[in-house]
C-alpha cells in the first residue's frame, strides 16, 4: 500500500514537472535557430567556381591565407540578403575582407543583385548544390561566419546583419586576427 501511495505522488510530481517545463518554455521566446557545430574547427576542404566575371571563385585554401575574413552566405533570391547589404558595405568600409558564397544562384541574377545592392565581396563562389553550406553547418540564407587566418571558423551569425551586429562582428574579426 505504501508503494502504491508513493506511485500516486510520483504521478503528481511528474505532472507538475511537465507543467513547470511548459511554463518555463512559454516564458521565453522560442529559439528556432540551428547553430553550426563547426565553430572552432577548420573550414572543410572545398573549391567553388566564380559566379560573376569580376570576382574570382572561392576555395578553402583562400580562407587560410593568414588574414581573418567574413564568409557571407547569400543569394539573389533571398530578401533579407538585400536588407543586410548596407551593413556589409559598412564592414567592407572598415577594412573587413568579405568573401561570398552564393547559394543556388544563376550568374545573371547574381550580377543584377550585386549591381543593385553593391558588391562588398573580394571573392564569390557559386554553391549550386548547397554543398559548402552543408559542410560548414549553415541552415539558411543569409548567414555569416568569421574565419581566422588559419581557416578556423570562429563565429557564426544567423540571419541578416543589422546595424547593432556590425560592432559585434568587427570585435569577433579582431579577436580572430590576434
Amino acid at each position: 500500500m505504501k508503494g502504491f501511495r508513493i506511485g500516486l505522488w510520483l504521478i503528481v510530481a511528474v505532472a507538475l514537472g511537465v507543467l513547470a517545463l511548459f511554463a518555463t518554455q512559454l516564458s521565453k521566446p522560442k529559439d528556432d535557430l540551428v547553430r553550426s557545430q563547426m565553430i572552432g574547427k577548420p573550414v572543410p576542404q572545398f573549391k567553388l567556381d566564380a559566379i560573376v566575371p569580376d570576382r574570382p571563385g572561392l576555395s578553402s585554401a583562400d580562407l587560410a591565407d593568414g588574414k581573418p575574413k567574413l564568409l557571407n552566405i547569400f543569394a539573389s533570391w533571398c530578401v533579407p540578403c538585400a536588407a543586410e547589404a548596407p551593413q556589409l558595405a559598412a564592414l567592407e568600409a572598415q577594412g573587413v575582407n568579405i568573401v561570398g558564397v552564393a547559394i543556388r544562384d544563376k550568374p545573371a541574377d547574381a550580377s543584377q543583385f550585386l549591381q543593385l545592392y553593391g558588391n562588398p565581396y573580394s571573392r564569390i563562389g557559386a554553391d549550386n548544390l548547397s554543398a559548402v553550406q552543408l559542410a560548414i553547418g549553415s541552415s539558411g540564407v543569409p548567414e555569416s561566419f568569421v574565419v581566422d587566418g588559419k581557416g578556423i571558423i570562429r563565429y557564426q551569425h544567423i540571419g541578416d546583419i543589422q546595424d547593432r551586429d556590425v560592432p559585434v562582428l568587427l570585435q569577433k574579426l579582431r579577436e580572430a586576427g590576434q
Binding site: R5, I11, V12, L19
Partner: peptide, 14 residues
C-alpha cells in the same frame, strides 16, 4: 484542472 484532479486523486485514491 489537472493539478487539482491529480492531487484530489492522490489524496483520495487509497
Amino acid at each position: 484542472n489537472i493539478g487539482a484532479a491529480l492531487v484530489l486523486f492522490a489524496l483520495r485514491a487509497n
